[in-house]
């Protein structure tokens, strides 16, 4: 849950609220949280799963449990994790917190207690509006994440990260219901085919023959 819509200084912190970075993960998640701090977050919270395996739903349950404790106006999450590609945690957190959510947001305007988002769907976009508090999940193109400045990075190193062990959060993540049985490599992509021939006419003829007889697309 790490991508922050912090664009330009004048656009920062329009709600005038504290900005928190939340992450559920092992020691390694600290790196991501430090980046968030360097990029402008005020506080970083890491929930340590203490070696417990958490599936998407359990992660959402833990996050929602912690987020409920703070009085947040807007929760921003990535639209999917880069590892398990689940597209699940954001909307599930919204469901557990009983707030509306808008996913895959590529543009947003906020004000007057409402957020208006443009989201992508197949072959087009939707403009949706909902009242705050709300959760949005980000899609590539929402903004240009700014670079963490060197002073920012130095400051972020000194800031403490609030680490909360899972057992202390008071949320029962439940047993993982989705288990990975096996991992394997996808079938190798077939190599492209280069058509040889004397001149364009012969190549075109060969191509048309292949497209008609083998690929059967024309």
């Amino acid at each position: 849950m790490m991508r922050w819509p912090l664009k330009k200084p004048e656009n920062q912190n329009r709600l005038g609220r504290q900005r928190y970075g939340f992450s559920v993960g092992p020691e390694k998640a600290v790196e991501a949280l430090r980046t968030a701090l360097a990029m402008g977050a005020d506080t970083a919270v890491r929930i340590d799963p203490e070696g417990k395996a958490l599936d998407g739903l359990a992660t959402a349950r833990v996050l929602a449990g912690e987020l409920k404790k703070g009085n947040f106006d807007l929760i921003i999450a990535g639209h999917r994790a880069v590892d398990d590609d689940n597209f699940q945690v954001g909307p599930a957190v919204a469901e557990f917190m009983d707030t509306p959510h808008i996913s895959m947001v590529i543009a947003q305007t906020i004000g007057d207690g409402k957020i208006r988002c443009t989201r992508t769907i197949e072959g087009g976009t939707l403009v949706l509006e909902t009242a705050l508090p709300a959760l949005i999940t980000t899609q590539r193109g929402l903004n240009e994440p700014r670079y963490a400045s060197l002073p920012g990075i130095m400051k972020a190193k000194k800031k403490p990260i609030d680490t909360r062990p899972l057992s202390a959060t008071g949320t029962d993540p439940g047993d993982p219901m989705v288990k990975i049985l096996a991992l394997r490599l996808p079938p190798e992509r077939k190599r492209g085919r280069v058509i040889d021939g004397d001149g364009p006419a012969a190549k075109a003829a060969a191509l048309v023959k292949i497209l008609r007889e083998e690929a059967k697309v024309i």
Binding site: L57, N86, F87, Q88, A92, E95, S103, M104, E122
Partner: peptide, 23 residues
């Protein structure tokens, strides 16, 4: 697992406490 389907699936999963495999 379309744009709409993903949203429905994720929220259903949380509402029903049900396991979900996406995509």
């Amino acid at each position: 697992s379309t744009a709409m389907g993903k949203d429905i699936a994720a929220r259903l999963s949380a509402r029903l406490g049900a396991p979900l495999a996406m995509d």
